[in-house]
Amino acid sequence: MVDLTQYLPILIFLVIALGLSGLFVFLPMGVSRLTGAHKPSKDKLAEYECGFPAFEDSRHQFDVRFYLVAILFIIFDLEAAFLFPWAVSLDLTGWAGWITMMVFLGELLIGFAYAWKKGALEWE
């Protein structure tokens, strides 16, 4: 069994790190109210623009390529996730494990070649 107490320090670290960064964000907000630096106004709170008021909503459609990259990322990152356990157990799985993984990589490579040829990796 995995010794879960190994991971306890990480959990404690998470709590401390969250507390620390929360403090950094919220403490200055309180301090600025005390020092009088907190003086919001309508123009100050407007979103950043070139000087004119914004013409349109900033959340509009964007290029479909970003989706493509995201989908490709999911495929390849999952593949990497398969490789991690394989990489540390190569001595146990031997040639059968190696060949199986190579077949898997080969299949993936075919998909990659297809995406490349179809222009999924092109920008412009």
Partner: peptide, 14 residues
């Protein structure tokens, strides 16, 4: 089936 579909996939791209 799997070999055929992979090969045909490449053929379809090119």
């Amino acid at each position: 089936l799997s070999i055929a579909s992979l090969v045909l996939l490449l053929v379809s791209a090119w």
